[in-house]
Design a protein around this nucleic acid. Structure first.
Lengths: 156, 156
DNA sequence: GGTGAAAGGTCATTAAG
DNA sequence: CTTAATGACCTTTCACC
């Protein structure tokens, strides 16, 4: 995959900053023609440079005020089956496999402390799970952003 | 804020599943009129039930093949200033404050192992940081989803 | 630059609580 | 009576070719 040029990174940056912005608005901001922006966006989409759109739901609005990160210590050979088991737990919004001791990092939402305890127990009951570590997320100290990264890579 | 009814949750579910879907498509899928869906969406947006759109950039396409989670142990009174310091590190895409020992969980991307080592050193050099734990993310075992959760809360 | 489609707005009507 | 949903029509804007 050939590297992106400065225009590509500036375009990605603008799209990340204003995901709802139209092609025309992006073109004006970058000083390009609509057609150029449109062609670039099509290429970027082919390269999977951005993961299309997302609609992130606000768990608080759904009555889930608690967010927690649960680290799961799991036997290596049980990792795949565990991922399938965990997929049945709706409160798990996201899960990453980590290096080292076959760990899993889960992003979990819960109704309250008791609910979180229940979910944790559910995870502990899954086959192959050794132990879990739960940490409540108090707040998002650094909201998701990607623009400075793009700026740094512009000239590369 | 009044709770969401079943129609709201079904709408949120459909929007999460097909973020690019048009209002008309959503209306057809839910068996509602276009105006109804539009009005509901406006209400949901006012309630901040979903976080508008997002364009998640693919770090791999930008030449950052490594994703890591770094846990930062930090003195409580230095937490706020540390967050400001970390905001200057472009490779940190996201950061959550955790309960307990004033920890931070960071989602970080890097060019390679050496780059990750450098970033970790940069974090360690910040004021108030006691130590860090780094775990490489191998793959996303459970991609972000929210629909089963919505289904479970429908009747509430 | 042209064309088809989607979004946003208004309004009158109708159904349900 | 009040709230919500519906269908119709309009204009503007956007995306695609």
């Amino acid at each position: 995959m050939q590297p992106l040029d400065g225009t590509d990174t500036r375009l990605l940056s603008a799209m990340a900053k204003d995901p709802r912005g139209t092609v025309v608005a992006l073109a004006q901001k970058l000083g390009l023609s609509r057609n150029t922006v449109q062609a670039r966006m099509a290429q970027l989409e082919k390269k999977h440079a951005f993961l299309s759109f997302e609609r992130r739901i606000n768990p608080v609005a759904l009555g889930y005020p608690l967010t927690a990160f649960i680290t799961v210590h799991v036997q290596q050979q049980k990792l795949a089956s565990l991922a399938r088991d965990l997929a049945d737990i709706p409160e798990i919004l996201e899960g990453f496999g980590l290096t080292g001791s076959a760990d899993l990092l889960l992003r979990v939402v819960a109704l309250d402390a008791e609910d979180l305890y229940r979910i944790n127990g559910k995870i502990l009951g899954c086959d192959g799970v050794d132990r879990t570590d739960t940490a409540l997320a108090m707040r998002e100290m650094i909201p998701y952003r990607v623009q400075p990264l793009l700026g740094r890579r512009s000239g590369t």
